[in-house]
Each structure stands twice: as structure tokens, then as C-alpha cells.
């Protein structure tokens, strides 16, 4: 009865019976949303999880999950982790630096608006077009390729490393840095001037303020943002797919192979296991992210 009381109060002069009916009625309004999410998000996810533990015959089996430990998927996972870690690190450090350069400009300045808009495009639009932008820069007859070939006599056919892990790290940084700016800027903006002034008043030098106040305050937000970048890179597909058309050096591209050729490692539906692996990694990282975010929002909110 205590639970229905607020609802009964919302409907004036209702008898108790009506109050009880109301507590179920409004929930029905959520049905379309829940059904839609159920069909297009939950069912596919459950399909992946169940499929990963199913044998070809349909019974329970650890065969596919165990196959994740074989050399090809393991190497792809390792490369994926290296790529995600490196691009998250580069993105977090440089992105935080850029965010600081921006936050020291007044909020209405053109610089600030331009940088946040550009970062919004590069971080969220992403994918294929960014890959092509770098191919046009460093690929065959690219702008920088030609320029460097003319000046330094480097290989005029372009940089083959662009299509391998170092290239992926470079191109990923191109959307990781802007993403960092977007997610880290609010934390920097939350740094109150009073804290600096209070520290200075109590005798802190600029260096002491940064080491003892600003860095400890920003640390959780920085780590949280870096984790978000990591998950973003790990789940990214389009850029790598556009850049690397053959072979599968990283997990997302191995999933592509599993989907398009149906049989990888002699296993039909191995894609389910790989997708499960991806869910697990991203879920762990996002869980940590949410935990850190809760902590900073208390400080910098």
C-alpha cells in the first residue's frame, strides 16, 4: 500500500481499488519501447551469448569458446588490445592537453567553439571517411607521400605501415583525441577557480597546486575517459575495415572473416564466440568507466 500511495495521490479522490489499478496501467506505456529494444538489441545479444555456447547440433558445448584460445583469435585479441591501449593512451594524453588548451580560452571564443565542433565531427562521424583521409595523406600518391618523396626521397608508393598496426594506431588517434576532448572537457570545466585560489592562499606555488590539488582531482576523470577511449577503440570496426581489406589482424576484422566466409578455423558460427569475447572485454571496461564516473561526478559535478 505504501508503494501505491504516491500514485493514488497523483489521481485525486480515487478509491483504493483505482489506485491499485493505476500502478499497473502506466507501466504498459513502456511496452512499445521494451518490445523494440527486446527485438533489436536484447535478442541479438542473447543469440550471440547462447550461440557461443552451442554446438552445431544445438546442444551445450564449450567448443567455440575454447577455440578462442587458438593462435589466430588469440593473436587478433592481443593486437586488438595493443591497438586499443596505445590509441587510448595517445588519445587520452594528447586529448587532455588539447582540452586544457581550449578550456583556458573564454567559453564564447571562436577557438573553443571551433575545436569542440570539429572534435564532435571527428569523434562521432568517424569510420570510413577518416581512413580515406589518411590514405589520401600517406597512401599511394598521397599528399604527404609525394611531399616527402620530393624532399627526402622516401618511397613514393606510400607508407605500407599505414595498413598495419602502426597505421591503425595513427588513424585511431585521429578520432580518439577528439573523443577525449569531448569527454574530458566537462571535468576540466568543473575545476573551480576557488580551489586554485584557496590553494594559493594557503601558500601553494603553481606547481604545488597542480601536483596536490588539480592532478588528484582530475585523475579519476582522466582514467575514466581513457577507459572509454579503450572501449571505443576495441569496438571500432569501420576504420580498420576500410583500411585493411584483406587479412584479419584484429578481433573486429576476424569477426568480419567469420561472418563473410562462414567457416573460420573449421567452425561454423565461430563469430558468436568472438562477439562474446568482445562483449566481455567492452563490458568490463565500461563497468570500470561507470564506477570512476560516479566518483568524479561527486567531485566535479
Amino acid at each position: 500500500m505504501t508503494i501505491t500511495a504516491p500514485l493514488a495521490a497523483a489521481a485525486p479522490d480515487s478509491d483504493p481499488g483505482r489506485g491499485r489499478r493505476l500502478s499497473v496501467g502506466p507501466s504498459l506505456g513502456l511496452l512499445p519501447f521494451l518490445v523494440f529494444i527486446g527485438i533489436f538489441l536484447v535478442i541479438p545479444t542473447v543469440t550471440v551469448i547462447v550461440g557461443a555456447f552451442q554446438s552445431e547440433a544445438g546442444g551445450f558445448s564449450l567448443e567455440k569458446v575454447r577455440a578462442l584460445g587458438e593462435e589466430t583469435p588469440l593473436r587478433a585479441l592481443r593486437e586488438s588490445l595493443v591497438l586499443s591501449f596505445t590509441s587510448a593512451l595517445v588519445g587520452a594524453v594528447l586529448g587532455a592537453l588539447l582540452a586544457y588548451l581550449v578550456v583556458t580560452a573564454p567559453p564564447t571564443s571562436i577557438l573553443r567553439r571551433a575545436v569542440t565542433s570539429i572534435c564532435g565531427v571527428l569523434a562521432q562521424f568517424g569510420g570510413v571517411t577518416l581512413a580515406f583521409a589518411w590514405i589520401a595523406t600517406l597512401g599511394f600518391s598521397g599528399l604527404l607521400t609525394d611531399l616527402m618523396a620530393d624532399t627526402f626521397g622516401t618511397d613514393p608508393n606510400g607508407s605500407s605501415w599505414l595498413y598495419e598496426l602502426p597505421g591503425l594506431i595513427l588513424v585511431y588517434s585521429y578520432f580518439q583525441i577528439p573523443l577525449m576532448v569531448i569527454v574530458f572537457l566537462p571535468a576540466l570545466e568543473g575545476l573551480r577557480p576557488q580551489w586554485r585560489e584557496a590553494a594559493v592562499n594557503l601558500g601553494a606555488t603553481t606547481r604545488q597546486y597542480w601536483l596536490q590539488v588539480a592532478f588528484p582531482l582530475l585523475r579519476p576523470a582522466f582514467l575514466g575517459s581513457a577507459l572509454l577511449l579503450f572501449a571505443n577503440a576495441f569496438a571500432a570496426y569501420a576504420t580498420a575495415a576500410a583500411l585493411v581489406s584483406q587479412g584479419a589482424p584484429i578481433t573486429p576484422l576476424l569477426i568480419r572473416s567469420a561472418l563473410t566466409s562462414e567457416i573460420v578455423l573449421g567452425q561454423a558460427n565461430f563469430g558468436f564466440a568472438l562477439a562474446l569475447e568482445m562483449i566481455v572485454v567492452v563490458a568490463i571496461v565500461m563497468g570500470l568507466y561507470a564506477w570512476l564516473l560516479r566518483r568524479t561526478s561527486r567531485w566535479l559535478g
Binding site: I39, F40, L41, I43, P44, T45, V46, T47, V48, G51, A231, A235, Y237, P252, I255, L259, G271, F272, L274, A275, M278, I279, V282, A283, M286
Partner: peptide, 16 residues
């Protein structure tokens, strides 16, 4: 959807 990447959804959506 931030935790369940689009790639995962594609893998599992065939029946739907």
C-alpha cells in the same frame, strides 16, 4: 548500445 558494439548486434541479428 555503448557496451554492446554494433558489430555484436550484427553478428546476432540474422534471425531477427
Amino acid at each position: 548500445p555503448l557496451t554492446i558494439p554494433a558489430l555484436v548486434v550484427v553478428v546476432g541479428i540474422k534471425n531477427v
